[in-house]
């Protein structure tokens, strides 16, 4: 096994451990972790199977294998960013509703307090 393979595999294992730790501590929700786990699976696959990239490039008709990596990863990152924007938009809407409800409730509550006094 080549040196570079050992390094990537070790880095991968550390990455998976870190993701697991985040999930266990409740800092990362599972639905967002799926993407990261899939990423590490891919990285792991290609660190064991060194020719894999060349094979894939030949199948898809890409001349230079590294270009396939860039194209694939940039596309995946864009999709994931879009997904994060969707999540942020949903949070924005939920936040707005919560803020409105809280302020209306507070007003009602103060009115009741004033009546009692």
């Amino acid at each position: 096994m080549a040196k570079i393979q050992i390094i990537t595999i070790a880095a991968n294992i550390l990455f998976i451990l870190y993701i697991s730790r985040l999930i266990i501590k409740g800092k990362l929700r599972e639905e967002y972790a799926i993407v990261w786990v899939i990423c590490t699976v891919f990285l792991m696959l290609f660190s064991f199977w060194r020719n894999g990239l060349e094979v894939l490039a030949r199948i898809t008709g890409v001349y230079q294998a590294p270009n396939l990596v860039f194209t694939g990863f940039i596309f995946a990152i864009l999709i994931y960013l879009l997904h994060l924007s969707v999540v942020a938009s949903k949070l924005h809407n939920d936040n707005k509703k919560l803020a409105q409800e809280i302020s209306l409730l507070k007003e009602q509550f103060n009115k009741h307090l004033d009546k009692k006094e």
Binding site: N95, K96, A99, Q100, I102, S103, L104, K106, E107
Partner: peptide
């Protein structure tokens, strides 16, 4: 006057809608 204090800044639309919600309720 009746005052509603929003806990976070929602922008003009969110503020107006809060007033509309008050009117409805």
């Amino acid at each position: 006057t009746i005052v509603i204090d929003l806990p976070v800044n929602l922008g003009i639309g969110g503020a107006v809608q809060t007033g509309i919600l008050y009117a409805r309720d």
